[in-house]
Design a protein around this nucleic acid. Structure first.
Ligand code: MN
Ligand code: MN
Ligand code: ZN
Ligand code: ZN
Lengths: 137, 137
DNA sequence: CTCTTAATTGCAACTTGTTTGCATTTACCA
DNA sequence: TGGTAAATGCAAACAAGTTGCAATTAAGAG
């Protein structure tokens, strides 16, 4: 939360109820949430925030580096708090959609290799697995 | 093309002009194309096919395993032919959108590790890099 | 604490990517 | 050469995300 205040101030932005509430929802979640998910949880908590504001806030929090955008082949984005969490990846069940964290990232060496081969500068990568969770097998 | 005929027949489906043309467009492309890209190229080649048919055909070709669906953080799907190409991944430039193939996949061992840790059965994975191409750096 | 003002919000409308319903057309086999 | 189920085109619907604008509000100045 202190990161939020500092980050916002540094850009001349304001600390508002929706911003606090949305970051809070993401910090409490054990898996990444879509904008619609966030909106639904806010409603459940009696916090009246428009879905448009959720989208705009997610963009702000992402720019501040407080949340990460995750894509799991669903045709939509998900977001998760980065607070106190290492860079990591996910696995998603093809049956029930369950998402689990993978606390690993073996790609440091590979990134260097890619940069040498392609002459691109690598800024980010995404590594996701898809399969069947124990219940759905 | 012989794969297409065999695959379609095996499911009681038919070989049609749109299906041939769409697979052909994908086989000629050096990078993965969106449905709209495919549609535009068909038009350029005087092949009149509705965009809806492109979407439906991409779904069929994907189910037959002839093409792969690729996601590069754009909010849309791309598709590429699998004919004669190894399983591989991509790098996409944040500046101009240029996409290059990465002919590597160092994830066999990792997959086994993930399966052991999570108890999921891994069926597929996605590994993509994002950065800046030589022209955009 | 009150005032001022630019940042933020909500609402409606819009855009883009993708899917669905249905009547018409067509590939394929008897 | 039909008969028939599969495939197509067109219009409409849907879903995620974005934009314009008037109303609201956080926060610094006094
Ligand atoms: Mn996670
Ligand atoms: Mn490729
Ligand atoms: Zn990683
Ligand atoms: Zn791979």
């Amino acid at each position: 939360m202190t990161n939020l205040i500092a980050g916002l101030r540094a850009e001349g932005r304001r600390l508002t109820r929706p911003r606090k509430a949305i970051l809070d929802v993401l910090e409490k979640s054990k898996y990444p949430l879509s904008a619609a998910d966030v909106h639904a949880r806010l409603k459940r908590e009696q916090v009246a925030v428009d879905l448009v504001t959720v989208y705009r806030t997610l963009a702000v929090l992402k720019k501040l580096g407080l949340i990460a955008q995750v894509e799991l082949g669903e045709g939509q984005f998900r977001y998760e708090s980065r607070h106190g969490r290492e860079h990591h990846h996910h696995i998603r069940c093809r049956g029930c959609g369950r998402i689990a964290d993978l606390m690993l990232c073996p790609l440091k060496k590979l990134t260097a290799l890619v940069e040498r081969e392609t002459r691109f500068t690598v800024e980010e990568h995404s590594l996701e697995f898809f399969g069947w969770c124990p219940k759905c097998q």
